[in-house]
Nucleic acid binder design. Structure first.
Lengths: 226, 226
DNA sequence: AAATGAACTTGATTTACGTCAAGTTCATTT
DNA sequence: AAATGAACTTGACGTAAATCAAGTTCATTT
């Protein structure tokens, strides 16, 4: 168990708990469980009973879905402030996805029961959550439209730019395999390899090795059209 | 202006106002504006000031986005119970999209101010809204994954099956142009034409003319793989 | 330090689907 | 009812990117 002030510090990191008064933050801190997950460990696995909302306090987590045919698909990369398990709010079900920590990670856990209680007690939290979900919907809609209308090169460039902008540190070092990146962007590892090589040739990125991409010209990447 | 009991009837149709007590429903009905929109008319247009959440009480509405290059893209087909404008919750902006009624349509309107007030007063509404948004997120995530991994034929078949299941009436008669369908599914009208012809040959649909597709073998459509 | 295998690169080949083009059908207007 | 034009169909062709295949690099294990 945590010291209370540690829990408060964790809660403060989370966007949906921002701009609350002190009493509410204390109340939230009472309900939140903090957990550390080391690089390579799983935050949760498919089949687990899904009874908690998970909020990223720090780190990077890869959410993957294993299809019936045994193939893995990366669904999402969780960064600080993101949350996962909104379906927990309305469904008592098993997790469909697994989540693996790519870096040492700190998360906040809150159970469905506690979260629902919190929502009824604190309208401010509900509104923050609605805002967050609304933004996620907008983002997904934009992404869906982009997926349908743009080339692999554009999508990759966009992804790199977006992900780097969400990152806390300056030196962009994406701990993802090309395989994951490929499946996330709806392409193949071979194509990722070729496109990154091309970006490298064009001077947009300085290097890309195993789990490592270093950006040099973000503005240039933003203009990639093929 | 509406008679109060008409407003209540309208409110009852809307999923996010379900399972509320009578007092709350009355309160909601006070805030809601009802509007009828005839086939072919616009519910809203890009550039309008976006200050209301729109909830579909009855009918079908096509949401389109006109890109800078002048091309139109269908973003979404709104059916009964769907709502649009969740971004209204957190942004005071102009509408980016236009919405055209494909059938005679009945909608509920509620302003941002009123809705935010409602949220703070009635946690039940907030939770319903969170559920609805959570479901929409899940749906969009599933759609994004499908878009990336499936062929046009599969996507089209899936879309027909899903849309028909959401429809109230039995006889499926989709009032969409092939152009819209094409842009929504990320393909071209020509390809839609060819795929529908193939479905027709395979006995999965009985006919498809201008704004008209009639399904015969939904189970068969669900199995389409190419 | 050698060995093993996963991750990655690079090239050759194939294919689904977009684009262009030339009709045809159908609804609306006059 | 004739005329106009948008929606649609069908065929021919081109291309981005998937797939297949054969190496090469690198990290982990022994």
């Amino acid at each position: 168990m945590l010291a209370h002030h540690d829990a408060i510090a964790c809660v403060r990191l989370v966007p949906i708990f921002q701009q609350l008064n002190h009493d509410t933050i204390s109340a939230v801190a009472e309900l939140v469980q903090e957990r550390h997950v080391k690089k390579g460990e799983f935050v949760f696995m498919a089949g687990d009973h899904a009874d908690s909302l998970i909020i990223m306090a720090h780190g990077q987590v890869k959410v993957i879905q294993s299809s019936a045919s045994g193939r893995e698909q990366m669904i999402r990369l969780l960064q600080t402030g993101d949350f996962d398990g909104e379906s927990v709010l309305f469904e008592d079900a098993e997790r469909q996805t697994s989540a693996e920590a790519l870096t040492d990670t700190q998360i906040c856990l809150i159970t469905r029961q506690d979260f629902q209680k919190l929502l009824t007690q604190s309208p401010a939290v509900a509104i923050n959550m609605l805002n967050a979900l609304g933004k996620r919907v907008s983002q997904l809609e934009a992404q869906a439209a982009a997926t349908l209308t743009t080339s692999v090169g554009e999508r990759l460039a966009n992804y790199l730019v977006e992900t780097s902008s969400e990152l806390e540190t300056d030196d962009f070092d994406l701990p993802l395999q090309k395989k994951d990146l490929a499946l996330y962007l709806g392409t193949s590892p071979e194509t990722i390899s070729r496109k990154l090589k091309q970006f490298s040739t064009d001077g947009l990125i300085s290097q890309h090795g195993r789990n490592h991409i270093k950006l040099t010209d973000v503005d240039g990447l933003m203009m990639v059209e093929n």
